[in-house]
Design a protein around this nucleic acid. Sequence first.
DNA 1: CTGAAAGCGCTTACAG
DNA 2: CTGAAAGCGCTTACAG
Lengths: 358, 358
Amino acid sequence: MEKKVTRKDIADIVGTTVSVVSRALNNSGYVDAEKKANILRVAEELGYARDPVTMSLEEKRTKQILFYCKDLTNAFNIALYYGMVKAAKGRGYMALLNANLKFENIKEAMIDGIILQNNYFADKYAETFGKNYHLPAVSACFGAGRNPAACIPVIEWDLNEAMEKGINYLRKRGHKKIAFAGQYSITSDTDNRGITWRNMMAEVLGDRLKDYYLDVTLPPYSTLNAPDKPGYIIEESDSVLNEETYADKGRIAARIFLDRQLDATAVICFNDEYTIGFVTELERSGMRIPEDLSIVSFDGVVGRSKLYPELVSITPDPMDMGYRLATLLLDRIEHKKIHYYAKQPCRITPGDSVRDIR
Amino acid sequence: MEKKVTRKDIADIVGTTVSVVSRALNNSGYVDAEKKANILRVAEELGYARDPVTMSLEEKRTKQILFYCKDLTNAFNIALYYGMVKAAKGRGYMALLNANLKFENIKEAMIDGIILQNNYFADKYAETFGKNYHLPAVSACFGAGRNPAACIPVIEWDLNEAMEKGINYLRKRGHKKIAFAGQYSITSDTDNRGITWRNMMAEVLGDRLKDYYLDVTLPPYSTLNAPDKPGYIIEESDSVLNEETYADKGRIAARIFLDRQLDATAVICFNDEYTIGFVTELERSGMRIPEDLSIVSFDGVVGRSKLYPELVSITPDPMDMGYRLATLLLDRIEHKKIHYYAKQPCRITPGDSVRDIR
DNA sequence: CTGAAAGCGCTTACAG
DNA sequence: CTGAAAGCGCTTACAG
């Protein structure tokens, strides 16, 4: 493990000073042509590389941004991240991932800015850590088409609109009774998918509305999801990922669906990972998609929606969303003019999981 | 966006010098009790945080390590990473992920060491970049129980032994004709799973050996895998992830299995992601696991093997493997004595995907 | 107990 | 064209 070679080393060999070496290497300011060639040659020979840490100190810039994301098992987040990598790369930055960073430790990270995973973390960040530490931050947002309270710029996937699109897509193909398989209790206001579904289906389903909401938090089903299974726990106190087992929840939802013997012709599922569990379980019981049931999902994650038949999925194009999030952050870091709220458009991916029953 | 507060700022307010402030804040050396209290208070009020970049320059340590991993869609790699995070955290380091780093750009990363994803990258690294740049590196290795040529310390999951365990597990339960669903051509020597399977099954299967190898690279099946689907491509020249669609390959393998009407009672699948595709496709055609066919998989990834029925999987406990890899790297960075070769033990996870047919 | 000094590896204005 | 100097934000040995 040899010592790293510095500009001083090169200067000593060539017989000059670091100032000159710097000018030669940086191609700035005058330096004798022959001497310059010499310096470049020696640098090459010694495999010189400038010290990134020193450069960061000098430039007051680390050229690194961080995606603050706890759940790497959700392919949607990975897709967001790949979009960030692409945007960062294009502007000379590195986009990093750190699965176990606490707010208190952000100060120790060598980064120029941070991208929060969702509204929940954005709020928490703004309330606590962000209050007295001014690191540029932006956040992904999955809400209802309005600017959240926090003073953090967001790019939002409007889930009201998304659910509306999903329901309309199904209605246009003749579906009337459309169930929803979510991950929160039916009484929860946490998820805009559920809220919009309730609003739009209330008239059609009337009293039976709640039956068509496949509530995986309901006993006895919820116990199927009891955490007797291992998760990625970094330390006792924070079970990073234990809560996130979308496929399991989807499987539970499928059992609820079967038990209730619903006459729904279509189901909208919480997200793609969830849908994998849902569909797998249904097919095991002999159902066929889309012959017996139509499915629409959320996310449109590359490589995850490749169930056969291909899923119809409402997607914000996560890679694009990640790209825009990173771009927003970089603009903020570089003091460009930015909008504090931008909407991430969404569309429906073509697929074969929906049957036209008109 | 206020300016960051420095020790000079605190010194000015308290009416002393940075030396004293440093000693107070670092709790080293003498400093007047009252003055110290004052300094601490002001630091608190101003929300002072030491500059991580400066600390890195000072200590010649960034306290960051990087998992050089291109394929974040494979849950196995994510599990490895979580193990690294845990080990790093325990020793005051941060474990980072950067999905699109090229060897040439490693020099620009502020890291103390790097963990390579597999033998392939380790060899490439040793041959090219690692030759004239001495960044501590270690590598995961998926081979045949021997030290690879590269002078990079490795932790190896011996896939010969793993396959042997899998086959013996099945034989003990009465299985004789065991097929293998891999991802490489049957003639390839790239994958030790395939090599060992061929060796162990040659006698039982005789001339028909190749029929029991579900070769997904074979036309016309391979065309099913044609890349008409989008992947995570960061830039035209390097399709980062396009090649990795394990679930698709599993689906192809299932079709081959069905088309050949094999009388195998069990199939060993390449990995968990692959198995999801394989099982899904089989169940769609009416087969039942394990009633009609027993399945053994590789990896044992948390949350991915939770198909119902639960998969029997040969696993190196990826989180543990990641933990050991990071520990190895940190030992190397801190100049502790290390072994250049260590074996990662593997075991078989309990599950219901194998039927006892004795 | 305190503060000026040198140093980490680099940059850049400035006097020669 | 060149090199000594000051500075980025910190640390630590050392003279007071």
